[in-house]
């Protein structure tokens, strides 16, 4: 218990030091505001953005597309992962393409999507879906390949149909990997939306970043980055809580 309090105390002290350094170091070292704005500059800019730039709308838009892209991308990734996991043939046939797409930098597709779909919400949604898709797919597929054969045999000996084996043995077996994939995907979703917004369109925090940098308004860029981090953090935390509930049957690591 005392160690837990010590950790908390140390964390708070460190936070205070970082914030103080942010506030006072730039001025002390003579770094101009358009390079590194201080904490108070950023807070003032935040208030201005709220009042003048419609920050709430941008924030909500980014949040919405992050969640939407995350849900669609991970659903597609999971479904394809399970389908390929059940068919060794198609897995072998498709794996080179999957590998190629997985290695290709997904954000580089953003300009292409804009050429195809125009300056609307579609490109950023697609980039997000694409970037979220792979970690989920790969995790699920990997888990499907390593399901305990003896468990499957047991289910077969108990007369379960192919679908029964899937829903009662394979799917639940892959849950830990699925959840791990979703956690990785949640952090990537924010990247997908940000890149989509930076490259095209006039809404969202990603847009505010490119807009702010065009105006040499570093405080605006800082604020937008912090808010993007907040969105990613909230999504990640939500997943961690869901995971704790779903995987309640796994022994907890103490210590």
């Amino acid at each position: 218990m005392t160690s837990q309090r010590a950790v908390l105390l140390a964390s708070l002290v460190l936070l205070a030091l970082v914030l103080a350094a942010w506030q006072f170091l730039p001025t002390a070292l003579g770094v101009p505001v358009y390079i590194i704005p201080t904490l108070s500059d950023c807070l003032a800019e935040l208030a201005r953005m709220w009042q003048v730039e419609g920050l709430l709308g941008h924030f909500l838009s980014t949040t919405l597309y992050t969640i939407l892209g995350f849900l669609i991308g991970s659903a597609l990734g999971a479904v394809l992962g399970y389908l390929l996991g059940m068919s060794e043939f198609w897995e072998k046939v498709l794996s080179p393409y999957i590998l190629a797409l997985q290695i290709a930098p997904k954000v580089a597709f953003a300009p292409l999507f804009i050429m195809w779909f125009g300056y609307n919400a579609m490109p950023k949604l697609l980039v997000t879906v694409l970037i979220v898709f792979f970690p989920v797919l790969v995790n699920v597929l990997q888990a499907m390949k390593t399901v305990d054969r003896d468990l499957v045999n047991l289910a077969r000996a108990y007369n379960l149909s192919r679908l029964g084996v899937f829903f009662k043995v394979e799917m639940p077996s892959t849950l830990p990997n699925l959840m791990a994939g979703l956690r990785i995907a949640s952090t990537l979703a924010v990247i997908g939306v940000t890149v989509g917004e930076m490259v095209g369109g006039n809404t969202g925090l990603g847009y505010l970043i490119s807009y702010g940098s065009g105006q040499a308004n570093a405080a605006m860029v800082f604020d937008a980055i912090v808010l993007l981090t907040v969105i990613g953090f909230l999504l990640y935390s939500a997943l961690v809580r869901i995971e704790a509930r779903v995987l309640h049957y796994l022994p907890k690591a103490h210590g």
């Binding site: 047991l154 000996a157 007369n159 029964g164 009662k168 849950l175 049957y249």
Partner: peptide, 29 residues
């Protein structure tokens, strides 16, 4: 249906309670 088998591994489904595990073999019968 007349044959039941047990291995060195208990093959209990970790996501099911003990009671649900015991019911497992009856579910498709």
């Amino acid at each position: 249906a007349h044959v039941g088998f047990m291995l060195q591994k208990d093959l209990l489904l970790p996501w099911r309670s003990i009671l649900q595990n015991i019911e497992f073999g009856l579910e498709s019968r």
